[in-house]
């Protein structure tokens, strides 16, 4: 098995630990852990979009007041429960997003007929992006993409069909025992955080 596939399956097994997390502190720690995972696998992390997400989702929930009245903005009560609910939802989204990033690094091979179709789609996607560079002029747009599609519909002369051989994208190293161990460790950490959150050991704020 390729190591990118190990990450895929680890992520699938970890998904419920994030989806079922009820504690806002637990989900925040899980999100941080998953962001770290994505970061160490060549994915980028930008703070601002995540802050915007956190603020917008939290403030959207203020419209439905819930819990301790902290302060008011004009006539509008800012409540602790509503803020926490919004923050929890935003952290869930962030955690899922970066877990998803982590899972698809190295482009794992998906099983079955659909997996082969997706490979074929990506084969054409690469051909389109390379062909597009050689097309000029690119304006007006319609004749340009028309020429692009005609060029691609002609039977490929260079390589054989990608659906029979093992897809052109299956790069990635062979999985070693250590990759398996490392991912098992990540899985245990994420589920441990879930258990901590459910059992109320983590502070509930």
């Amino acid at each position: 098995m390729k190591s990118s596939n190990i990450r895929l399956y680890m992520g699938l097994l970890a998904l419920p630990s994030i989806l079922l997390q009820d504690s806002s502190v637990g989900i925040a720690i899980q999100a941080g852990y998953v962001i770290m995972l994505a970061l160490t696998h060549g994915r980028r992390f930008r703070l601002l979009p995540n802050i915007i997400l956190l603020v917008s989702v939290s403030s959207a929930h203020l419209l439905q007041p819930h819990g301790l009245h902290l302060f008011s903005i004009g006539n509008f009560p800012v409540t602790a429960g509503a803020l926490l609910l919004g923050a929890r939802k935003a952290f869930t989204l962030i955690a899922l997003l970066y877990l998803s990033h982590y899972m698809v690094t190295g482009r794992p091979q998906f099983p079955g007929r659909l997996g082969k179709l997706v490979s074929l789609q990506f084969y054409y996607f690469e051909r389109i992006t390379t062909s597009w560079r050689s097309i000029s002029p690119k304006r007006p747009f319609i004749p340009a993409i028309d020429r692009l599609l005609i060029a691609l519909s002609a039977p490929a002369t260079d390589s054989g069909s990608p659906i029979t051989d093992d897809s052109p994208h299956t790069f990635g190293t062979r999985a070693t025992g250590s990759a398996l161990l490392v991912n098992a460790f990540h899985l245990i950490v994420l589920w441990a955080l879930f258990v901590l959150g459910q059992s109320g050991i983590l502070p509930t704020l």
Binding site: Q64, P65, H66, G67, L68, P77, T79
Partner: peptide, 14 residues
């Protein structure tokens, strides 16, 4: 001396 606010349309216990 504290105050709590809830939406009447959302079922809850407190």
């Amino acid at each position: 001396n504290k105050e709590w606010v809830y939406d009447l349309s959302v079922d809850t216990f407190a």
